[in-house]
Computed example of a mutant assay.
Amino acid sequence: MSSVYSVDVEIRAPVNDTEVTARVADAIRNLFPEADPDHREGELVAEVHTMEGFSEELHRAEILDTARSVFFDNLAGDSFAFDLKKQAAFESRVNFAVGEPAELGDIHVGVTVRAPDAESYIDSVAPPTEDGKPIDTE
Protein backbone atom coordinates (compact mmCIF):
# COMPACT_ATOMS: atom_id res chain seq x y z
CA MET A 1 0.00 0.00 0.00
CA SER A 2 2.55 2.54 -1.11
CA SER A 3 0.09 5.09 -2.56
CA VAL A 4 -1.61 7.69 -0.42
CA TYR A 5 -5.32 7.12 0.06
CA SER A 6 -8.03 9.15 1.75
CA VAL A 7 -10.44 6.64 3.20
CA ASP A 8 -12.98 6.44 6.02
CA VAL A 9 -13.75 3.01 7.43
CA GLU A 10 -16.66 2.68 9.85
CA ILE A 11 -16.87 -0.54 11.85
CA ARG A 12 -20.02 -1.49 13.79
CA ALA A 13 -20.70 -4.60 15.84
CA PRO A 14 -23.73 -5.37 18.00
CA VAL A 15 -23.04 -6.31 21.61
CA ASN A 16 -25.72 -8.58 23.02
CA ASP A 17 -26.53 -9.04 26.70
CA THR A 18 -24.92 -12.49 26.60
CA GLU A 19 -21.62 -11.17 25.19
CA VAL A 20 -18.64 -9.62 26.90
CA THR A 21 -18.09 -6.16 25.40
CA ALA A 22 -14.29 -6.45 25.69
CA ARG A 23 -14.32 -9.67 23.63
CA VAL A 24 -16.30 -8.01 20.83
CA ALA A 25 -13.85 -5.08 20.95
CA ASP A 26 -10.96 -7.58 20.71
CA ALA A 27 -12.62 -9.17 17.67
CA ILE A 28 -12.68 -5.77 15.94
CA ARG A 29 -9.09 -4.93 16.90
CA ASN A 30 -7.84 -8.35 15.79
CA LEU A 31 -8.75 -7.50 12.18
CA PHE A 32 -8.49 -3.71 12.39
CA PRO A 33 -5.59 -3.09 14.81
CA GLU A 34 -5.90 0.69 14.34
CA ALA A 35 -9.48 0.65 15.72
CA ASP A 36 -10.44 2.02 19.13
CA PRO A 37 -14.08 0.90 19.52
CA ASP A 38 -16.54 3.05 21.49
CA HIS A 39 -19.53 1.47 23.24
CA ARG A 40 -22.82 3.05 22.12
CA GLU A 41 -26.31 1.76 22.91
CA GLY A 42 -25.88 -1.97 22.33
CA GLU A 43 -23.05 -1.78 19.82
CA LEU A 44 -19.41 -0.98 19.39
CA VAL A 45 -18.44 1.63 16.80
CA ALA A 46 -14.99 2.49 15.50
CA GLU A 47 -13.63 4.61 12.69
CA VAL A 48 -10.24 4.13 11.09
CA HIS A 49 -8.58 5.59 8.03
CA THR A 50 -6.66 2.55 6.81
CA MET A 51 -7.28 -1.12 6.15
CA GLU A 52 -3.61 -2.05 6.22
CA GLY A 53 -3.93 -4.51 9.11
CA PHE A 54 -7.00 -6.07 7.49
CA SER A 55 -5.14 -6.33 4.18
CA GLU A 56 -2.29 -8.16 5.92
CA GLU A 57 -4.80 -10.71 7.26
CA LEU A 58 -6.25 -11.20 3.75
CA HIS A 59 -2.75 -11.84 2.40
CA ARG A 60 -1.84 -14.17 5.27
CA ALA A 61 -5.06 -16.18 4.84
CA GLU A 62 -4.60 -16.21 1.05
CA ILE A 63 -8.19 -15.10 0.41
CA LEU A 64 -7.52 -12.09 -1.82
CA ASP A 65 -9.82 -13.32 -4.61
CA THR A 66 -12.67 -13.86 -2.17
CA ALA A 67 -12.17 -10.41 -0.66
CA ARG A 68 -12.05 -8.75 -4.11
CA SER A 69 -15.29 -10.50 -5.06
CA VAL A 70 -17.05 -9.35 -1.88
CA PHE A 71 -15.74 -5.77 -2.21
CA PHE A 72 -16.64 -5.39 -5.90
CA ASP A 73 -20.05 -7.06 -5.43
CA ASN A 74 -20.88 -4.40 -2.83
CA LEU A 75 -19.27 -1.42 -4.58
CA ALA A 76 -21.55 1.58 -5.09
CA GLY A 77 -19.81 4.71 -6.34
CA ASP A 78 -17.00 5.55 -3.93
CA SER A 79 -18.18 3.17 -1.19
CA PHE A 80 -18.35 -0.53 -0.43
CA ALA A 81 -19.45 -2.51 2.61
CA PHE A 82 -19.13 -6.03 3.94
CA ASP A 83 -19.89 -8.10 7.03
CA LEU A 84 -17.56 -10.32 9.03
CA LYS A 85 -18.26 -13.13 11.49
CA LYS A 86 -17.52 -12.03 15.05
CA GLN A 87 -16.33 -15.42 16.32
CA ALA A 88 -13.81 -15.79 13.49
CA ALA A 89 -12.62 -12.22 14.05
CA PHE A 90 -12.13 -12.97 17.75
CA GLU A 91 -9.80 -15.77 16.62
CA SER A 92 -7.99 -13.31 14.27
CA ARG A 93 -9.46 -14.92 11.16
CA VAL A 94 -11.29 -13.21 8.31
CA ASN A 95 -14.60 -14.91 7.56
CA PHE A 96 -17.00 -12.92 5.39
CA ALA A 97 -20.62 -13.19 6.47
CA VAL A 98 -23.06 -13.96 3.69
CA GLY A 99 -26.75 -14.71 3.80
CA GLU A 100 -28.57 -14.48 7.11
CA PRO A 101 -26.77 -12.63 9.93
CA ALA A 102 -25.36 -14.71 12.78
CA GLU A 103 -27.54 -15.07 15.84
CA LEU A 104 -25.39 -12.59 17.78
CA GLY A 105 -24.89 -10.33 14.76
CA ASP A 106 -21.95 -9.68 12.49
CA ILE A 107 -19.30 -6.98 12.30
CA HIS A 108 -20.39 -4.49 9.63
CA VAL A 109 -17.68 -2.55 7.79
CA GLY A 110 -18.49 0.44 5.59
CA VAL A 111 -15.69 1.95 3.49
CA THR A 112 -15.80 5.34 1.76
CA VAL A 113 -12.86 6.22 -0.48
CA ARG A 114 -12.28 9.93 -1.04
CA ALA A 115 -9.09 9.71 -3.14
CA PRO A 116 -8.09 8.49 -5.56
CA ASP A 117 -11.00 6.05 -6.20
CA ALA A 118 -12.60 2.94 -4.71
CA GLU A 119 -11.36 0.52 -7.38
CA SER A 120 -7.73 1.55 -6.82
CA TYR A 121 -8.17 1.22 -3.07
CA ILE A 122 -9.64 -2.27 -3.43
CA ASP A 123 -6.65 -3.18 -5.61
CA SER A 124 -4.32 -2.03 -2.84
CA VAL A 125 -6.16 -3.87 -0.03
CA ALA A 126 -6.81 -7.06 -2.02
CA PRO A 127 -4.69 -7.02 -5.17
CA PRO A 128 -5.55 -9.12 -8.20
CA THR A 129 -3.91 -12.52 -8.20
CA GLU A 130 -2.53 -15.03 -10.64
CA ASP A 131 -2.23 -18.65 -9.52
CA GLY A 132 -3.15 -17.43 -6.02
CA LYS A 133 -0.26 -14.95 -5.79
CA PRO A 134 -0.70 -11.15 -5.84
CA ILE A 135 0.15 -9.49 -9.13
CA ASP A 136 2.29 -6.36 -8.84
CA THR A 137 0.22 -3.79 -10.75
CA GLU A 138 2.48 -0.80 -10.07
Rank of each mutant, 00 (worst) to 15 (best):
M1E: 07
S2V: 08
V4G: 11
S6R: 11
V7K: 05
V9E: 09
I11H: 03
R12Q: 13
A13H: 00
P14Y: 00
N16D: 12
D17C: 10
D17A: 13
T18V: 15
T18H: 15
V20W: 07
R23Q: 15
V24A: 09
A25P: 04
A27P: 02
I28W: 09
R29N: 14
N30T: 07
L31W: 03
P33K: 00
E34F: 01
P37G: 05
H39N: 14
H39L: 14
G42Q: 08
G42V: 03
V45W: 04
V48G: 07
T50S: 14
T50A: 13
M51D: 04
S55G: 14
E56D: 13
L58M: 02
H59V: 05
A61T: 07
E62T: 09
T66L: 15
T66E: 15
R68N: 03
S69V: 08
V70R: 03
F71E: 02
D73C: 12
S79Q: 13
F80D: 04
A81D: 10
F82H: 05
K86Q: 11
Q87T: 11
A88G: 04
A88M: 04
E91F: 06
R93T: 12
V94C: 08
N95P: 02
A97K: 13
E100G: 15
E103S: 13
G105D: 01
H108A: 13
V109R: 02
V113H: 01
P116L: 03
P116E: 05
D117G: 07
Y121G: 00
Y121V: 00
D123M: 06
V125I: 11
T129M: 07
D131K: 10
D131N: 11
G132T: 04
K133E: 11
K133L: 13
D136I: 01
T137Y: 15
T137I: 13
